[in-house]
Amino acid sequence: MSIDSSEIEKIAWLARLSLNEDDIPASKADMSKILDLVEQMNTIDTGGIEPLAHPMDIRARLRADEVTETDQRAHFQKNAPATEDGHYLVPKVIE
């Protein structure tokens, strides 16, 4: 199954990947192969089978509503490139 360049560019944009013009043909080929595989799976009759949300057939274990985490801001913020007044700083985003 073939996929066109604009679709490749759109997918790259959604994933925030920067693709070179030169990378597009290779990505196109790879993605087409993946879609071929999906196409092959689509031929299987799954009419009587319930959709599976998770490969493990067990239910989620729930936790009690208790505060178990302490404030580790100073520790976490050591990893951040820029912080001020307790905030993580990022380039200006405004609507």
């Binding site: 820029a82 001020e84 007044d85 307790g86 905030h87 993580y88 700083l89 990022v90 380039p91 200006k92 985003v93 405004i94």
Partner: peptide
């Protein structure tokens, strides 16, 4: 997102 008080940056809480 806090847009005021961080110059030309945005603060994230």
């Amino acid at each position: 997102s806090v847009h005021e008080g961080f110059g030309n940056l945005t603060g994230i809480d």
